[in-house]
């Protein structure tokens, strides 16, 4: 064969390969056009179940939010309670509201939909056969993604200001997922990230954030240490408050009312007479309380309120301690 023909043959073979690769894909996988998070729930039932229990799923339906926003007549609240996909915006900038499926709150697409219509995952080996065509997007795990909503009240800035180590041990995780989306095992032994986003509505999460201790000596010594939340406690919404209160008991069985010793809270903008008393990550709050005469025991409790006017009955008891006179 004449050497001059070789390039022609190679070109022909190459052309055929190109045509085949275009016209006959290696495997028929129907690509899903992602329009609504409802499409995700079908294949990802385990994740969906976790998410359905989360406050992300509850973001629109939460009665407290509905009341504060006049059932979303205040449309500015929609931006974070029914957001468009965060990945459509510049990292760290805030999101804007979507028009459909608002009842799903912070839904799957809010975090996972990319600009090109793919589904973003932090998995470095995404399943190429999945109809939603997952694609590794490292940005998904970065604090900037959460900052789109959660930095309106500086939670991510607080996290950045927190020391990476506390008492020589790692304290601040590498991102928000470290604490709020820990590893979860699902049916079939599959590993993933917990989508229930445990935070201030979860007793375990609250207790892992702070520890309350009390000591009866000359005075009653109270200590609250933020050793687990790598941001202020409480954080995010200004309405959130944690109240530390005590109740003394006398020998005859009578006791005082609950006496509030301290309120940890970032006040509303117009509460100009109040200071921000939230407890930064890694810091400890102490107080010495004089012991009244005749007191035989004291109860100490830390109540977490989702709004500062919430009754004690509706508040969340994070810690309840009882000390007797030594």
């Amino acid at each position: 064969m004449k050497p001059i023909l070789w390039p022609a043959i190679l070109l022909a073979l190459g052309g055929t390969w190109v045509l085949f690769s275009i016209l006959i894909p290696p495997e028929e996988i129907e690509t899903l056009q992602i329009a609504s998070s409802r499409q995700c729930l079908e294949c990802h039932a385990d994740v969906a179940k976790e998410w359905e229990e989360s406050h992300h799923a509850f973001a629109y339906k939460n009665p407290e939010v509905r009341k504060l926003s006049q059932d979303f007549r205040n449309e500015e609240c929609l931006a974070c309670h029914a957001p468009r996909p965060v990945l459509l915006f510049e990292p760290g900038t805030r999101v804007l509201a979507r028009n459909a499926d608002r009842g799903m709150g912070v839904d799957c697409l809010a975090c996972h939909l990319t600009e090109s219509g793919n589904v973003a995952t932090t998995n470095t080996t995404p399943n190429s056969k999945a109809p939603c065509k997952p694609k590794t997007v490292p940005r998904l795990a970065e604090p900037e993604s959460c900052a789109a909503c959660h930095n309106q009240h500086k939670t991510v800035d607080q996290w950045r200001a927190t020391p990476p180590k506390l008492n020589g041990k790692p304290f601040r995780g590498e991102n928000c997922l470290h604490c709020h989306m820990p590893q979860a095992w699902r049916s079939g032994g599959r590993k993933g990230s917990d989508h229930s986003f445990r935070a201030s509505h979860d007793l375990e999460a609250l207790q892992s954030a702070v520890t309350l201790s009390a000591n009866w000596e000359v005075t009653l010594s109270l200590t609250l240490q933020n050793h687990g939340a790598a941001h202020n406690f409480p954080t995010d919404e200004r309405s959130r408050a944690a109240d530390l209160a005590i109740r003394w008991s006398q020998e005859d069985g009578s006791h005082t009312d609950w006496l509030r010793q301290y309120r940890f809270r970032d006040p509303y903008r117009d509460e100009t007479e109040l200071q921000n008393t939230t407890l930064p990550g890694g810091e400890t709050w102490n107080s010495e309380v004089p012991i009244p005469e005749g007191a035989v025991s004291v109860q100490v409790r830390l109540l977490y309120r989702t709004n500062p006017f919430q009754s004690d009955e509706d508040a969340f008891p994070v810690y309840e301690l009882e000390l007797k006179r030594p």
Binding site: Y60, F72, R73, D101, R102, G103
Partner: peptide, 10 residues
């Protein structure tokens, strides 16, 4: 059921 009350009212 999929249209929350606030959106229906709007």
């Amino acid at each position: 059921e999929q249209v929350p009350e606030g959106e229906r009212t709007r």
